[in-house]
Design a binder for these strands. Structure first.
Lengths: 191, 191
DNA sequence: AATCAATGTTGACAGTGTCAAGATTGGAGC
DNA sequence: GCTCCAATCTTGACACTGTCAACATTGATT
């Protein structure tokens, strides 16, 4: 038990402990009771901060997504053209999950992203990485002087994202990461 | 309890019951005890046929993969050129998982495909859909008179597969299925 | 007919998510 | 300072899970 009855910032401590457990032994090893124990707190204490096990997991997802977004934004910053920025995003996307396959499975594994967004209360508008991609894509259209309907834009966006997402998915698999680099990514992203 | 002490073909019955449960209420609702109960059999009976819960799940995966392969092969059969066949495969791939999002999450959700292959004892060589794609791709190279090293082939193959896999992944998400058709799939698959 | 390996049952164990009831606390208002 | 309340945490319980060991039943082989 902790020195004080009240922990201070148990909510964030639970999230951090959860991430640590996932990194060390995978999501299947994450239990509310272990997370609580890691924070020196009784097994039902998390229920003061999270309605569910699911709600804790979503909080962790948001936390990981924030770290991901930081990398994406540094990759995009400094790039002059939108085309460069999109390619850089794609590479960062793939690299990030290559380096953290646990995160990939954790984020996209059990439930699809749409479901994740629905659960997500803090990010009520959209999935942040996707928003960033849309911004860059609109810039790309502008720079290349193309005109597209909203519908066309959305479809093209989803396709670009599908490709990057699929590549990341594959890149996470064992053995592939080392033997492949996505150097002609641009040929496929911007047709 | 069943009429007879010995069930007859409990192994397959367990697999079928497992698939039914997954379709009706998702994988998170699948437990050994429920599967056993669905077969009118005691809670420990599955252990005569599967070492683990994981081993039952892998058996179910193989079963679903077989059904998937049947659709892929009918899609490919009858196509004259390899290019047509590859596009048809891609569309079937996306359509199959659009129609069965539960299967997608189940097959590719928790563990990546490589891990799935390692667990898989019956299909010791490779993942069948990937083998089919490789056959078609080699035919494509032949037909278009291209020469590539083995290394180049493998990389290109993985990239094609990444794209299709990513598209299927996206297509599984709610709302997207209806508003998008991958009609210019060919522009991306065979660069 | 006897025997054995395969198959199925029963009972137990530790671990899980969840809830209800109560204990402890910091802080707002007096 | 004191009271009181809402937030936080503990304790104890419940049903459910995967897994194992010990035992029961069976079909097939010898």
């Amino acid at each position: 038990m902790a020195d004080t009855y009240h922990h201070g910032n148990l909510r964030q401590a639970l999230i951090d402990a959860g991430i640590k457990i996932i990194n060390e032994s995978g999501e299947e090893n994450l239990s509310l009771r272990k997370v609580a124990a890691a924070c020196n707190v009784s097994h039902a204490a998390p229920y003061a901060h999270f309605k569910d096990k699911e709600e804790l997991i979503n909080a962790i997802k948001n936390n990981v997504t924030e770290r991901f977004m930081e990398e994406l934004e540094t990759a995009v910053n400094g790039k002059i053209s939108a085309d460069e920025a999109i390619i850089a995003m794609g590479k960062t996307y793939v690299t990030f999950f290559s380096n953290n396959p646990d995160y990939y499975v954790f984020l996209f594994g059990k439930q699809n992203i749409t479901a994740h967004l629905q659960m997500n209360k803090e990010y009520k508008n959209d999935y942040p990485p996707f928003l960033l991609l849309r911004r860059m894509y609109l810039k790309h259209l502008e720079e290349s002087g193309q005109e597209k309907t909203f519908e066309e834009q959305e479809i093209e966006l989803i396709k670009i994202w599908s490709i990057v997402h699929g590549m990341a998915s594959i890149a996470c698999m064992k053995g592939i990461k080392s033997s492949i680099d996505w150097n002609n990514l641009d040929e496929r992203l911007l047709v």
